[in-house]
Write a protein that binds this DNA or RNA. Structure first.
Length: 223
DNA sequence: TAGTGTCC
DNA sequence: CACG
């Protein structure tokens, strides 16, 4: 086991599991390196298709600021933000149509990721698609608009690398930083389900097929 | 506070 | 770090 010291709370013990690609972070949080690479061709094809139906758009926060991350959704429910607040909606406010169905390639990856770290009954009904162009960021926040915190969060990273910050249960708590690269998956649930997390501004990058970072976040939003 | 501008 |  390799201890990685991070500040006052010694937040992180990071160690390698039996599977060389799976690392556990703090409690009930896992990094699966390169886990999404196997099916990436199908994944990207499905992504392109569903974004034609529900395009990426920059949503507005309740405070009135435009988010630097462009978003869309697929699945029964989609996360939306506007001046009224954050919530899940069955329909895309841009098209007034239901969000595109969650492709099998998406669902399978999410469930396999969750199973790989012990969440055997993950049934996502929502997939938030985040596009980070160079410079885009996501400040520390909690995923707490879902109805059932017993199900984990599965986050899939594609394209440009980014630094993921994983914190505590208050915004000011010490955070740890993880480099998330193309194909990496982060899963957190249980006692870590409501930890603050965020993404530092994405830097102009390497020679990737995508000139941006795409993040797929799978959740059980409804009951 | 799922942001931003500004100060020291 | 204050601001809304």
């Amino acid at each position: 086991m390799r201890f990685v010291g991070f500040g006052k709370e010694k937040l992180m013990d990071l160690f390698t599991d039996q599977q060389p690609t799976v690392q556990q972070i703090v409690k009930d949080a896992y990094l699966l390196k390169s886990f999404a690479l196997r099916n990436q061709t199908q994944l990207l094809a499905d992504l392109t298709q569903l974004l034609e139906a529900s395009p990426l758009r920059n949503m507005v926060t309740p405070g009135g600021f435009s988010m630097s991350v462009a978003m869309s959704n697929c699945g029964e429910l989609g996360w939306v933000s506007d001046r009224k607040g954050y919530r899940y909606a069955t329909h895309d406010p841009l098209t007034d149509k239901p969000w595109p169905a969650m492709p099998n390639s998406f669902r399978t990856l999410a469930q396999q990721s969750a199973s790989a770290v012990g969440y055997e009954n993950f049934h996502p009904d929502a997939c938030l698609i985040n596009q980070y162009k160079v410079g885009a960021r996501m400040s520390l926040h909690q995923d707490k608009n879902e109805l059932d915190f017993n199900q984990p969060i599965v986050s899939v990273s594609l394209g440009l690398p980014a630094i993921f910050q994983f914190g505590g249960f208050e915004r000011a708590d010490k955070t740890v930083s993880l480099l998330l690269e193309h194909g990496d998956v982060v899963v957190w649930g249980g006692e870590s389900r409501l930890r603050f997390h965020g993404i530092l501004p994405v830097k102009a990058g390497q020679n990737t097929a995508l000139n941006c970072r795409i993040n797929l976040t799978f959740r059980r939003a409804g009951k």
